[in-house]
Simulated scan of single mutants.
Amino acid sequence: MKNFQVTELNISLVPVDWLFARYQKLKKSVKITAGGQKELMVIREYLEKTGRTSVSSCDEEVEQTEMDIPVAIRQQYVSIVEYRLKQYYQANKRKQWLHAELQTVRPKEPKVTAGMELTGVSGRSGIPHSSTEQAVMSMFDKAERLQDEIWEVEDQLYPMEKALRCLDPDQLKLVEAKYFCREEELDEYLMNSFNWYRAKYYQVKKTALILLAQSLRII
């Protein structure tokens, strides 16, 4: 696209992805010529007219991609955020399993010792020997351990849950579809599934990862 220039004559033949990329490149130019200004105007008017995207969304993407992020960190934050998202998914699955397990072991009747007879107690230690008593107490112990682990997992989940609340509906939709599953979905598959053109998909994805990285204090 180095020598490519959009004009009123060829714009209808140019893929929307290319128009979006060209618009961004022109907007980010330090020195823009009169020809470049005219090209920007042609692209803006065409995108507005066809309803493919809005000028504000183009401008917003340019601003977002130019956030003040050091280059070294910018090259690392994506893999870190993606790893944290996968950790969050696994921890959430663990929490669901713990809740289900807790429901199966939690005793329904809290009072279980009222009917225990004296003959069921050792004269030396005073420890109940009733098999029913021991079984129920074991269930209480297991339920307590499960609840403690649930609270521990919830503490681990909180930072990401807080970060996810910063995303808009499209960003959250993409993150959930791509990262909250057993096997990560391909970008091309999700583009078709959402019926998004390529530029919009990568705009939403990049912005979502930046916002998560900022909320998690990775950048």
Rank of each mutant, 00 (worst) to 15 (best):
V62D: 13
I11M: 05
A199D: 06
H129Q: 11
M160G: 03
V16I: 15
L19M: 10
I69N: 11
A114L: 07
E63P: 04
L98W: 13
A208M: 09
L212W: 01
Q24P: 01
M116N: 03
D17Y: 12
K28N: 08
A199G: 08
K108L: 14
K111L: 12
F140H: 10
V55Q: 09
L172D: 00
K25G: 06
V78R: 05
H99A: 09
S12G: 07
S29L: 15
V62A: 13
A177C: 05
Y89M: 00
E109I: 04
E63T: 04
L102E: 08
A143Y: 13
E161N: 14
V136A: 08
C166I: 13
P128N: 04
A135Y: 08
E45K: 11
R217Q: 12
R106T: 15
E183H: 06
K142P: 06
R198K: 14
Y88Q: 02
D17H: 09
Q87F: 03
T33Y: 09
F20A: 11
S125F: 14
N195C: 03
S125D: 15
L164M: 14
K95L: 15
K200L: 07
L172G: 00
Q75V: 01
I219H: 13
D155C: 05
H99Q: 08
K86A: 09
M191T: 01
Y189Q: 08
Q24M: 06
F4K: 11
F4G: 09
Y77R: 00
A177R: 10
M160C: 06
T207Q: 11
Q103M: 14
K162E: 11
D17S: 12
S193D: 11
P110W: 14
M116A: 07
Y201E: 02
L209E: 06
E144A: 15
G123F: 01
K25N: 07
N192L: 14
L174I: 05
S215H: 11
V42T: 13
M116W: 02
L186V: 00
T50N: 03
I73R: 10
P110Q: 07
V153A: 03
V121H: 08
V121S: 01
R94M: 13
K178I: 12
I32F: 03
A135T: 10
L167T: 15
R106F: 15
T119I: 11
L85H: 05
L186R: 05
L19Q: 09
V6Y: 03
I80F: 02
K49I: 03
P15T: 07
P107D: 12
M67Q: 12
W97C: 01
W151D: 13
I32Y: 03
F180E: 00
L211Q: 09
Y189I: 10
Y77F: 15
I210L: 04
N3P: 06
E117N: 07
I80Y: 03
V81L: 06
F20I: 06
Q76W: 01
